[in-house]
């Protein structure tokens, strides 16, 4: 037993996921993504590459989008996590979810939860004035097609739904700005 705990140490981790507090004992090697999928049965966040190269695992950690496959759960003790399962308000879909359905912004759907969480992050980042690579220096970002394409580039979609994703995010951003 001593030998095992030396070789495979675990820790107690407290996480708040979609508003629900959890206290878990986890192998230190466990990523946030595997915590969600294998321990909490929240399989919305997807494993596409497991190396931060595709974005399918994107969730919001303390409100900011992040690749959950590269985060060790043990290092997130106390964090608040929002996954795609937590975007909707009960039966009422998040405006981004509605827009994705309307614009057919996915086909196989495997990248979709990551796209949605990433898009939620994009809306917040732009509202906070966070620049992207295409934002002119000295200007506040405006979520036009070019900005959305650049900001959503951390989420690969092999079905090629990008033009529809861009429209969905843009519609949501405009509707949000109009409110």
């Amino acid at each position: 037993m001593d030998d095992e705990s030396r070789r495979c140490p675990s820790s107690e981790v407290r996480l708040q996921v979609n508003g629900t507090p959890y206290r878990l004992r986890l192998d230190n090697r466990t990523t946030l993504l595997d915590t969600l999928r294998e321990h909490l049965d929240l399989t919305g966040a997807k494993k596409g590459c497991d190396h931060g190269q595709c974005g399918a695992c994107t969730v919001l950690v303390d409100g900011r989008r992040s690749n959950s496959c590269l985060l060790l759960a043990v290092a997130l003790d106390g964090a608040a996590v929002t996954t795609v399962e937590g975007l909707a308000d009960g039966e009422r879909l998040h405006p981004l979810q509605e827009a994705f359905l309307e614009h057919d912004a996915f086909q196989c759907g495997y990248c979709t939860p990551g796209q949605l969480c990433s898009a939620a992050g994009v809306l917040a980042e732009a509202a906070d004035g966070m620049p992207s690579a295409v934002t002119p220096v000295g200007e506040s970002p405006r979520l036009d097609g070019g900005e959305i394409r650049e900001r959503m580039s951390g989420n690969l979609c092999r079905c090629g739904a990008y033009p529809n994703i861009v429209r969905a995010v843009q519609d949501t951003a405009q509707a949000g700005a109009a409110r």
């Binding site: 989008r65 966070m130 992207s132 934002t135 220096v137």
Partner: peptide, 29 residues
């Protein structure tokens, strides 16, 4: 870092370099 005024306005090279790297998710982490 990329968004901070001391970088974004005064040292655009650093802001641009940061924003040219990785993805939004990775830069947040």
């Amino acid at each position: 870092l990329a968004a901070h005024p001391a970088v974004r306005r005064r040292r655009p090279a650093l802001s641009q370099a940061l924003l040219a790297g990785a993805s939004g998710q990775l830069r947040n982490t």
